[in-house]
């Protein structure tokens, strides 16, 4: 067993070095992507990763408080992006989208946040609350059911077609020069909003009463209850906050990729969970950092490592890189890069 793990470990490192070396050789001989292409990959990776991070917060918080993987969180994210589309579309039709983009995007964000929060809270009330005392795989299986239910409810309600957001104004589509780096405007917007949201969340968890309750309940539900904290309300708050973060991510995702459909939530959901584990589950700054790291891995990884082996069509293997990262992290560092924060009972 341990030998097997060592083989995997050594093999992974050798393959990594070999791949990178191959890419470097290609680069030196002028066959690989240009420096600008690399830079774009990095920026795209960070922007994508910032959204993973936002979604990961929901996984991390719920896991911290209730000790199970809320598999349906990806659909919470999708629901925000989906409803955001209708608001965005309306604003586009009435012209506000073009005349006052900042106000428009705030409105879209607001609707998206509201939807995601609502969905998260309703799901908690209907499906998870009755299962508090069950063995931990039961709520996980339930959340898988919820995930499919939500996907196909949204497909039924709004149709299966991909909803295309209106194009952002020209100023966002062009490149913006920042500290000597040229960054595409929409990606910059994504990164800025994500960072601002993250800071807001951090302040909320550290400074407010509800935030303190959330931390206390994550630490130990019974003692928190003895200390006079309303555990039920706190758990609802946790789902609400996680949902809100996912709502922000939903709008950002839709802005960046311009499209939302009922299955949009699945892959980002799984990847965000990976990010949460990568950063150490229960650890909020870790979740954000994990998200950005994962975004970078899958943005740059295929080009950097796989292309070095002369594998064709590496961008198809983006998801393989992300999932491999998940597998490797869970094998070798299940507590995450920055340490998990769980109560003893959830760790068992």
């Amino acid at each position: 067993m341990d030998t097997f793990l060592w083989i995997v470990r050594v093999g992974a490192i050798i393959l990594l070095i070999w791949g990178v070396a191959g890419t470097v050789v290609q680069g030196l001989s002028g066959r690989g992507p240009t420096g600008e292409a690399w830079r774009d990959l990095v920026v795209a990776g960070i922007a994508q990763g910032a959204m993973y991070g936002l979604i990961a917060l929901g996984y991390s918080m719920v896991y911290g408080v209730l000790g199970f993987i809320n598999f349906a969180h990806g659909e919470v994210f999708m629901s925000g992006g989906m409803v955001g589309f209708f608001v965005a579309n309306y604003l586009w039709e009435v012209g506000l989208w073009e005349t006052n983009f900042v106000l428009a995007i705030l409105l879209v964000l607001l609707s998206s946040i509201l939807t995601s929060t609502l969905v998260a809270v309703i799901v908690e009330r209907i499906a998870y609350r009755p299962l508090r005392a069950s063995p931990r795989l039961i709520p996980l299986i339930t959340s898988i059911g919820i995930s499919f239910f939500l996907q196909y409810t949204f497909a039924g309600l709004f149709g299966v077609a991909v909803k295309n957001y209106p194009p952002p104004p020209d100023s966002l589509r062009s490149r913006i020069s920042l500290l000597g780096l040229e960054i595409e405007g929409s990606k910059l917007l994504v990164i800025v909003v994500a960072v601002a949201t993250m800071v807001g969340l951090y302040l909320f968890v550290e400074k407010t009463r509800t935030g303190r309750s959330i931390r206390a309940v994550a630490e130990d539900k019974e003692i928190a209850a003895l200390m006079g904290i309303d555990v039920n309300r706190t758990i609802v708050a946790t789902f609400a906050v996680g949902g809100a973060m996912a709502g922000v991510a939903g709008t950002l995702w839709a802005l960046l990729f311009r499209g939302v459909s009922f299955i949009t939530g699945f892959l980002p959901g799984i990847k965000a969970f990976t990010a949460a584990v990568l950063g150490g589950i229960g650890n909020l700054p870790g979740a954000m950092a994990g998200g950005v790291l994962l975004g970078l891995f899958e943005g740059v990884g295929p080009q950097l490592v796989l292309a070095g082996f002369g594998i064709p069509g590496v961008s198809q293997l983006k998801d393989v890189v992300a999932f491999t990262a998940l597998v490797l992290v869970l094998i070798f560092k299940p507590t995450g890069l920055f340490g998990e924060r769980l109560s003893a009972e959830d760790r068992a």
Binding site: F323, L330, I331
Partner: peptide
């Protein structure tokens, strides 16, 4: 690799393998 993991991590990792 997955057998020593916590039950819920095992679920997600096997899912990852399936997709891979």
């Amino acid at each position: 690799p997955v057998i020593r993991m916590r039950g819920d991590y095992l679920a997600i990792v096997t899912l990852g393998f399936g997709e891979i």
